[in-house]
Design a protein around this nucleic acid. Structure first.
Length: 353
DNA sequence: AACGCGGGGTT
DNA sequence: AACCCAGCGTT
């Protein structure tokens, strides 16, 4: 049980003190981020929404770059709704988890069609790509609704405050709800996340700078980094694939990928080498599908994506198919690495010739 | 509840 | 080389 009392006790005496301490720290030392412009609790819902989706499983430093670039391309929800999915994905290129961009685009079309943003948690929750976290964040930050966010920062901070090694989602949400400052829900949510991102960090928390260490059970135990215990992760799976480059690194035959992996992006025509098959057989399949003739092996690239490691052999090929502009297409890092092989080949040809 | 989904930062 | 990052949708 937590130090804040349980059944039979009155409201924990120190919740109010904890709120005051953390909010005072936040008011003095909170991060200055572009999507935090405007009045507390009444921020621009479009900007808050874009930032929250960008920051899903993406670090703030990286999100900053894409935030500027995305808002430049699509300054309003109407502009986003009118854009093509290809243009939205191009703005998202390199940011990962591309379903976020496709859902953002679909949701923008819904909002534009409705003529206004939702203004409740349930309304936001109904939009594609908006889950419990994002709905709580947008409604607290832009509409002043008393909703507690539950993200990786909140999970870690609360696990340490209460010395909980394996906090369940339900447990975290319950603690976050109980702790929420209902007078300043938006600022409270931001404060908890700022604390997690800058002080209460995963590996080496800076407890000497923490405004709430006197309330923290993990700090009292002297081993803050022990909470929460690391999650078990799926092993990285190795895959082999073959691709053909028809054209060159600026203009090439590109296919639209379908399915969950890199779905919606463009890329070199590709086939996975299945079990019990050689790369040559996969290449044969690929060339038959395209009615293409392959020439030489350009080289091989590897790409690791959290849960899998892909080794891709890239062959030069010819086929009477239209070339697309690489600069105008949204490609994964894997395809950009493959195209780099052609950049190197061109450079080698120039110096040898 | 568990898994798949990108790409990169931190330790 | 782990482990993580302002999570979400699917199964």
């Amino acid at each position: 049980m937590s130090v804040f009392g349980g059944p039979g006790h009155n409201e924990a005496p120190d919740r109010a003190g904890l709120r005051t301490s953390l909010l005072a720290w936040f008011d003095a030392a909170g991060r200055d981020l572009p999507w935090r412009a405007g009045v507390e609790g009444r921020r621009d819902p479009y900007r808050v929404w874009i930032s929250e989706v960008l920051l899903q499983q993406t670090q703030v430093a990286r999100g900053l770059t894409y935030y500027d670039r995305f808002l430049q391309a699509f300054p309003t929800v109407q502009a986003l709704a009118l854009a093509s999915e290809a243009d939205v994905l191009k703005a998202w290129e390199g940011c990962g988890y591309y379903a976020r961009a496709r859902n953002l685009h679909r949701a923008a079309r819904q909002v534009a069609s409705d003529g206004r943003f939702p203004d409740t948690y349930a309304g936001w929750r109904a939009l594609p790509g908006v889950g419990p976290y994002t709905a709580a964040a947008v409604t607290s930050l832009a509409f002043g609704e008393a909703r507690a966010v539950n993200d990786g920062n909140v999970r870690r901070v609360l696990a340490r405050l209460y010395a909980q090694a394996a906090p369940s989602e339900t447990w975290v949400q319950a603690q976050a709800d109980a702790l929420l400052d209902s007078q300043r829900p938006g600022a409270w949510n931001e404060a908890l996340m700022d604390l997690g991102a800058t002080i209460c960090t995963p590996r080496s928390p800076r407890c000497s700078d923490c405004p709430v260490s006197k309330y923290c059970c993990a700090f009292a135990e002297g081993r803050p980094a022990a909470y929460p215990a690391p999650k078990a992760r799926a092993a990285v799976q190795a895959k082999e694939a073959v691709a053909v480059l028809i054209g060159g690194h600026t203009h090439a035959v590109l296919e639209r990928r379908t399915g969950s992996l890199l779905g919606g992006l463009m890329g070199l025509p590709m086939e996975v080498v299945s079990d019990g098959e050689t790369a040559e057989q996969a290449l044969q399949r690929l060339c038959e599908r395209l009615q293409a003739d392959h020439t030489t092996l350009l080289g091989q690239v590897t790409h690791t994506m959290t849960h899998r490691r892909i080794t891709l052999r890239v062959y030069a090929a010819r086929a009477p198919l239209p070339l697309r502009s690489v600069a105008d297409s949204a490609l994964s890092r894997l395809d950009h690495k493959a195209l780099e092989l052609d950049v190197r080949r061109q450079a080698a040809l120039l110096t040898s010739g």
